[in-house]
Every structure is written in structure tokens, then in C-alpha cells.
Amino acid sequence: MRHLRRRRVVEEIPQASLPDLAFLLLIFFITSTVFAVEHGLPLVLPSATRSPSVTVEASEVFRVRGLADGRVTVDGSPATLEQITPQLRARNAERRALGQSELIVVVETHPDASYQTMVSILDRVRAADSRRVALQMLEEGP
């Protein structure tokens, strides 16, 4: 007598390629992820209530002006942005040689000047490793 034997077919989802798939997605995320990193020009502002006003001599000040049309002056003389860093470095080196403190950089920006003008000046001042910086707005300007 012949018996019919039923074969049980086990159905399953093939999982052999699962690590490949996971690694593929992983590589995509690793290569495409951009971790948000903020860069900026840091500055500590004087407090409106706690910072006392100080009087400084004109010889201690390195005055950079950003004019409405984007032009720049250094201590009243026309200059380019590229000239700010070497001039400031040289003046600070002279003062250090004489045992004097670092110059105070006053960045005066015309109210109609673009923000980029101020940032460009501040960038060049930072390149000269100058940390004593004051921001001002020109009341009247050319």
C-alpha cells in the first residue's frame, strides 16, 4: 500500500542580504550626513550696566572705518582690507617692543554700509590676533 507523504514547505523571507542592505543604507547616511557646525566671529560686548566707560588716549587706538560704499580707512587714510592685518600687526609689535599694551581696535561702520563690510574688517582684525575690539557706528560719514 502506498502512502502519500505530505511535504511541509517552510516559507520564509530570505534574510541573507539583510546586512548588505543595512550597510548600503549606512554608507549612504555616513557620506551624506553633514553635522551642523557653526562658525562665527566671537566678540564680547560691553555690558550696558556693568561696564564702566573708559577714556583712552588716541595713540592707543587703531581706528578702522567702513564707509557706506564699502571703502575702508585706517586712522583716516584710505586703505584696502588686505592692508589692515599687516598694519595692525606692525603697530602692535612696535608697542610690545616698547613694553606697551596692545592697541584697541575701533571698528566704525557707516549706518548705510553693508554688514559684510563690518564682518570683513572684523575678520582682518582677528587675523592680526587683536582681541581688544570695539564696535561703533559712524554718526556722520561721507
Partner: peptide, 29 residues
């Protein structure tokens, strides 16, 4: 701040920050 913004607006914002004693500032670039 947008690079084209007139500095007078920036000056007003800085004055408000000083008023709030928020003296640690970073100009994002």
C-alpha cells in the same frame, strides 16, 4: 545677519543685546 543688511540694523540689535546683558556674541559667517 544677511551680508546686504545695512549696519544700522545690526547696531540696533547689538544695543538690545547689551541691554539684555547678552554680551557673548558670535557673528555667524
Amino acid at each position: 545677519t544677511d551680508k546686504r543688511t545695512r549696519y544700522t540694523f545690526m547696531h540696533r540689535a547689538l544695543a538690545e543685546m547689551k541691554k539684555a546683558e547678552a554680551v557673548r556674541v558670535s557673528f555667524t559667517t
